[in-house]
């Protein structure tokens, strides 16, 4: 119990961000038209490629001779980068097609 209370005290800022971001996420998406469902899913999926930042931060504090961690974290970066870069590229292509259709 003391652990949990201490966690709340040390992470109070985080908890505020978390709560407000949840409501923000709900509000942002509330009026999206049906045609945009797939591009929006793809775009927000690309944003979750942010995960590779975690791998980068971990790799930077790992001792240079700890090869197991380094290699695992490199794979973390590779998979995260595929998600982020590929995700935004795919979303871009979807939206291009969408714009072409609208212009015709």
């Amino acid at each position: 119990m003391t652990d949990i209370l201490q966690f709340i005290t040390t992470n109070l800022n985080m908890i505020y961000i978390l709560a407000f971001a949840i409501f923000l996420g709900f509000e942002i998406i509330s009026k999206v038209p049906t045609v945009l469902h797939t591009p929006l899913m793809s775009g927000s999926n690309a944003i979750s490629g942010l995960i590779l930042i975690g791998a980068i931060l971990l790799i930077r504090v790992t001792p240079s001779d700890n090869y197991i961690t380094l290699i695992l974290a490199t794979f973390g970066i590779i998979f995260g980068a595929v998600n982020a870069f590929g995700g935004f590229a795919v979303t871009g292509r979807m939206l291009e097609m969408f714009n072409k259709k609208r212009n015709k």
């Binding site: 971001a21 409501f23 996420g25 942002i28 998406i29 929006l40 999926n45 975690g54």
Partner: peptide, 16 residues
């Protein structure tokens, strides 16, 4: 940034 972005994706994903 990860916290904010992740939660945004999480909550908007559920609404979506």
């Amino acid at each position: 940034l990860m916290l904010l972005g992740g939660i945004l994706v999480g909550s908007s994903g559920i609404i979506l």
